[in-house]
Amino acid sequence: MATVTLKGNSINTLGELPKVGNQAPNFSLVKNDLSTASLDDYKGQKVVLNIFPSIDTGTCAQSVRQFNQEAAALENTKILCISKDLPFAQARFCGAEGLNEVETLSDFRDGNFGKAYNVTFVDGPLQGLHSRAVVVLNGKGEVVYNEQVGEIVDEPNYKAALVALMDA
């Protein structure tokens, strides 16, 4: 288990993020149109997995905005914003905010992404949701950077993720 905090109170995830140098686990997530996306769909592209509990919270929303802004300048890169929110809520948020450089994906159907990446909370008030984490993949689907954000209300280290992305 990995332990993080929510306003100073410890809560646990299923485990550690995929390790740098390892192949990223495949996934099956739901797109806004209710079709399915898998890691294989992004072969040959660099990928940022921006993982968070809910797009309806301030810090999560800010991470989507920030990555959307950063993504505009990136070539051959996809920013995937992943939560257990329903695809309708994800699409509504991005539409209202005018965010079109990121892709939102939902793990609401079976939670297998959260299990494969070990980000599912196993206790605490957010049990069943995903922790805040960033995983960066190169064009071969290998993990080149990961960050399990230690305090859920904190934003991820965007700069470190983007530096790893440029080096991938």
Rank of each mutant, 00 (worst) to 15 (best):
Q90Y: 04
N146V: 11
T120V: 15
Q127G: 06
G114H: 00
V144T: 13
Q69V: 11
G141P: 08
V143M: 05
L129P: 03
L126H: 01
K115E: 12
E75G: 06
Y145M: 11
G111A: 07
Q66E: 14
K140Q: 15
L80T: 09
N76F: 00
N118T: 06
N138G: 06
N138K: 01
G139N: 14
Q148P: 09
F67S: 05
L74M: 14
G98M: 06
A89H: 01
F67D: 03
G139F: 00
N76Q: 05
N100M: 02
E147I: 07
N68G: 04
N118P: 11
A89Y: 08
L137F: 00
A73D: 14
R65T: 01
F88Y: 12
C94I: 14
G139W: 00
R132F: 02
A133C: 12
F93Y: 15
V144W: 00
Q90S: 11
E142N: 12
F113H: 08
R109Y: 08
V143W: 05
D85I: 03
P125H: 09
G114Q: 00
E142Y: 05
E103T: 15
N138I: 05
G114A: 08
R92I: 09
L105I: 08
V122I: 15
V135I: 14
E97P: 04
G98W: 01
A91T: 05
A116E: 11
E97N: 10
E142L: 11
P125R: 02
N112G: 10
Y145D: 05
A89I: 10
K140Y: 04
P125A: 10
L99T: 10
G98C: 05
D85G: 11
D107E: 07
E75R: 06
N68W: 07
Q90R: 02
A133T: 07
L86M: 11
F113S: 04
G128H: 07
R132S: 13
H130N: 14
S131N: 03
S131H: 06
A73H: 10
A133S: 15
N76Y: 01
G139Q: 14
T120D: 02
F121G: 07
G124L: 11
D107G: 05
R65Q: 08
S106C: 09
E70Q: 12
A73E: 13
Q66V: 11
A72M: 06
N146G: 10
C94V: 15
S83E: 06
E97D: 13
Y117M: 04
T104E: 04
G95N: 15
A89S: 13
L86W: 12
A133Y: 01
D85R: 01
F108Q: 00
N118R: 10
F93E: 09
S106Y: 06
L99K: 08
F108S: 01
C94E: 08
N146T: 14
R132C: 10
V136T: 09
D110V: 04
I79N: 02
F121V: 11
N138Y: 03
Y117A: 03
